[in-house]
């Protein structure tokens, strides 16, 4: 067992656990959007940042991918952490303004509005990547992937056209932390010509 501190409480974890796993095991609250036990952690949303302290030294790390280590001193709610979470949520309020989940999370951090302009009022996707990971790692099909990079990044099937590779299993819709995938499924799934006559068979 590995012993360390979270918010000045002594906790114990198995080797190989992450700080997030341990914190949740003990009931410490750490927000996440891109994390799910079923898939490999990706450290994308950065909401789960925690602060490691050692004397005057301190550093922020993503708890979902940070492995536990003996004697570390973890803090889950400091001013630096709140600053990171506040800006992420404020930016998400303008990026995926249609998401009730994000509005609720933001409200928990005292944010009701955003200083940034809203360009796409219907958007709900914040590119956490859970859908692409579940499709590749759990379903084993990799029907969808992230496309492009940077601010142009999006989720889609090849050439952004519906694909027959998708079997409409619905895993991506289920794992999506907002309702973004629900509205995209028609852009991903192409019904094969033979299936049109017998949509329920197979």
């Amino acid at each position: 067992m590995i012993t360390f501190q979270i918010d000045n409480h002594t906790v114990q974890a198995k080797a190989g656990w992450t700080v997030l796993e341990t914190a949740r095991h003990y009931g410490f609250e750490i927000p996440t959007l891109c994390h799910h036990e079923a898939v490999t952690p990706s450290g994308a949303c950065r909401l789960c940042m925690v602060e490691l302290r050692d004397g005057d030294w301190s550093k922020l790390v993503a708890s979902c991918i940070y492995p536990v280590a003996e004697g570390i001193n973890v803090h889950t709610d400091t001013e630096r952490i709140r600053n990171v979470r506040r800006w992420i949520l404020e930016m998400l309020l303008s990026e995926c303004p249609a998401s009730k989940q994000i509005q609720d999370l933001a409200a928990r951090y005292g944010l009701k509005q955003t200083r940034f302009a809203i360009e796409n009022p219907d958007e709900e996707c914040m590119l956490c990547g859970l859908c692409t990971r579940v499709c590749e790692e759990v379903v084993g099909l990799a029907a969808i992937s992230t496309v492009d990079r940077g601010v142009h990044k999006k989720v889609g099937a090849p050439f952004l056209r519906p694909t027959e590779v998708c079997v409409a299993c619905g895993c991506c819709v289920t794992i999506c932390p907002t309702n973004a995938m629900q509205s995209r499924i028609d852009a991903v799934r192409r019904v094969p010509a033979t299936a049109v006559t017998a949509p329920t068979s197979k």
Binding site: L141, S145, R149, A157, P158, T163, V165
Partner: peptide
């Protein structure tokens, strides 16, 4: 490599033209 992942690579890097 699955097509979605090839497409992901082809759109990630700036030098590729589709």
């Amino acid at each position: 490599v699955p097509e979605s992942q090839v497409y992901s690579v082809a759109t990630f890097y700036q030098s590729f033209r589709l």
